[in-house]
Design a protein around this nucleic acid. Structure first.
Lengths: 220, 220
DNA sequence: ACCTGAACACCGTTCAAGT
DNA sequence: ACCTGAACACCGTTCAAGT
């Protein structure tokens, strides 16, 4: 009956069977209760999913690796994005739920506050921080959303994808075949590659305006 | 009974009611047929969704704006990503289906081939082209995946989000409140901002290796 | 007050039976 | 050979009835 127990069980169930096979009946059964009882705590399945998203966001701080006081804002921003990405990778089936609603729950707000604090104390202007965090958060969640496509039943692992493009008719798909051997080795590598590009781009962009870009100690 | 008519009706139905409310019965009814007949053409609902994704990808070329022969690869790459993003924006409820499977259908292959052709003929090495296209494609689809979150029932429009963050307790969420007035004005603007960052990053990255980055006429 | 079995109006998928 | 009504085993959500 404690609400937190329901949410924890819901997270576990989504992790195990995915949002598609998740059902109120299954959840009620696991809690040795009935669906009608669940509806006294939550208005709908969707509301439970929102709580699941918030619960998962609560794990982000655990994946935040310590950064030295001398770390640049670039290093700090990459650390934050990486913590979010690693959290989502631990709950691959949950990620799609992030695309239904903006995470306005307490853990979502806390994650945003922590990240914005790091950026502001690293010398970002409020405007630059808002744009940087928003784009990095959307980039990270967007990439993680596609994790599911690489865990299906087709030739959908790194090696299989390369082989598939390589096996196409070179007369019909010359450019695709030519580049097939050079495809990124994993969505992970690609995520880091793109994240670095964005941070590089932010560095260039910020250097062009009077916003201070020199690192300053975080939360001294 | 022609298979293309079924797919066209499926796209229309997903556009209208979303994947959640889409049902085989509803589709059969629109086609004045029965669900059992649908199963003689497609093995499952999932297979129909795969065809819907491919059909939508077929619209990308229509959104490709003409680029001058003197256009840089940066301009060409942005044009390609923008065409994909605009296509997905026209089918916001379809986008989530992109996250279930890699688009290996004929239209998906054609879109990839066109984009890779542009990059290769713009002077990219096969390796640089593969990495650049993959990261840009995932970036674009990832961003578009989150379009749904900004069309819900909460305070989920640009103005409402700003107001929500602005109304938080400044003592508890100082960094969030400080940056609230500067949030990007729309997911559109943010998409273009991030895309520019990635292209800027690619420019820096490519300048550091012997890969030619000078524009050359496309498909002369 | 708190809980729940059973019901309602749906699903995806299959199959025996019709033309 | 091609189609389909009806069935099967499920859904989310509600509500009358029980303690």
């Amino acid at each position: 009956m404690p609400i937190e127990r329901v949410i924890a069980a819901a997270v576990k169930l989504v992790d195990e069977v995915g949002p598609g096979d998740f059902s109120m009946r299954l959840l009620a059964q696991r809690l040795q209760s009935s669906t009608a009882t669940l509806y006294r705590h939550f208005a709908s399945k969707d509301e439970i999913f929102a709580e699941v998203v918030d619960h998962v966001l609560g794990e982000v701080p655990r994946h935040l690796t310590d950064t030295a006081d001398t770390a640049t804002w670039q290093e700090r921003l990459i650390t934050i994005a990486d913590a979010l990405f690693r959290t989502l990778k631990k709950h691959p089936t949950v990620v799609s739920l992030f695309n239904d609603h903006i995470p306005f729950g307490p853990q979502g707000l806390a994650a945003r506050e922590t990240a914005m604090g790091v950026l502001l104390s690293s010398g970002f202007s409020p405007e630059a921080a808002a744009k940087a965090y928003t784009v990095v958060a959307h980039y990270t969640i967007g990439f993680a959303s596609q994790l599911g496509a690489y865990a299906g039943d087709g030739p959908e692992d790194d090696q299989g994808i390369r082989e598939f493009y390589d096996s196409l008719d070179p007369a019909r798909y010359p450019a695709t075949v030519a580049s097939a051997p050079f495809l990124p080795s994993s969505l992970d590598d690609e995520f880091r590659f793109g994240l670095q590009l964005i941070v590089d781009g932010l560095t260039t962009q910020l250097a062009a305006v009077p916003t201070p870009t020199t690192p300053s100690p975080h939360r001294r």
